[in-house]
Amino acid sequence: MVAGVAVLAAALTVVLLVHGTREAAPAPRVVGETEMVRVSAPGGESVEELALFDTGASSSSIDEDLAEDLGLDPDDAPTVKVRSSLGVEERPVVGVVIQVAGNTIPARVNVADRDELSTLVLVGREDMAGYQVSVGRSFLTRPDEAIAPSTAEVIFLETPALLPKTLLATLPLCALLVVLLRLWVGVSTLGTFGPVLLGIGYVQSGLMVGLVLTVSLFLLGLLIQVLLRRSFVPRVARLGILIAVVATVLAQLQSSASSAGDVASWGAAIPVVVTATVIEALWATWDEHGARVAAREAIVTLCVSVLIAALLLTPSIRHLAETVPVHFAVACLLWTWVAASYKGLRLSELLRFAPAARRAATGVAS
């Protein structure tokens, strides 16, 4: 049975690799809904920013603070009437050059307050001539060339890097990685699949923001544990209190970020219940095995979460999950089945028992 599943998984993997090789690099004129672009002013100043390619908007737009950073003067610029969801308003128009996928687009863009929007740059239909927007995909190009940005370039962006459909397609890959780490390597984490959801949170919020929030919540959870121990509350009540505290902290941070003009959805990106459950597992490990083991497993959990986030943002993985999500998910499911059939010693156990095995072999030989 397992052999048949392995053959089927191998065949489907070959099909995916062939598909990925054939379509790994999008055509030079294909862009995603969200891309990194370089905006340059006539004076020579330029910045790289995240841009939304919106086929529903006729003209392009940039944020007023971005215009100031580029040295542009909207106050002395001509104005144009723009119809938006807020009604008809007059906006100043300035000239810039937008670079995307290695091509330059001379554009007349209107200047508006985009602090509350998802991107500081919007590219409308007037400046998309010759470009095709691939709906449901993002980060297909760099500003200076028509190839997907690397994992390191995407993972630190404080914006959702994967759409829900793509995330669903990559969950079986995350499950496969967890099975390999636990059954083959012997890695122990705080919760079996907690690192998976934390990693997905890092993908959606940005790695640095996610790590800072997680470590802060871990420390807060340990402080709460000290207080709750004196109250002798039951486990369900402890978890309920912890969930409420985590949600309150994230809500306050989100509110503060919104007031400062930051649109990152930390409260939605960092899974509250999962974070609380992981912290509870940290409590239990601390009580049963001591602070050293708890600290080690917390560090391992964070490392696995970062590994998962980096894996999900690998260009080839994103490409397959976006273009053939069902086939990709099925292939990962089959390989997970194969990996789960392993019954031998884990790598950590082999390393632990290796000295004893060598001593036993030396004794038999003598």
Score class of each variant (00 low, 15 high):
E280I: 11
V338T: 00
A340S: 14
E280M: 15
A309T: 05
S265C: 10
P271W: 03
H327N: 08
L334P: 01
V273N: 06
W337Q: 07
V212F: 06
A309N: 01
E288N: 12
L307A: 11
V324L: 09
S256P: 05
D287M: 12
A321Y: 00
S305G: 13
W286D: 14
V306D: 01
V249C: 13
L222N: 14
V338N: 00
W335F: 01
G201W: 03
V338C: 01
W286H: 15
P234I: 03
A251C: 12
V304D: 03
L313C: 02
L311W: 09
A269I: 03
A284G: 10
R292V: 14
G210D: 02
I299M: 15
V212Y: 01
T248G: 15
L222I: 14
T214I: 06
P271Q: 03
T285D: 12
Q225F: 03
P315W: 04
V304Q: 00
S259N: 10
Q204T: 00
V306G: 02
A268G: 13
S216E: 07
W337F: 09
A310H: 10
R229K: 09
G261H: 03
W283S: 07
T336Y: 00
G206M: 06
V274A: 07
A295V: 04
L311N: 09
R235L: 14
V263L: 09
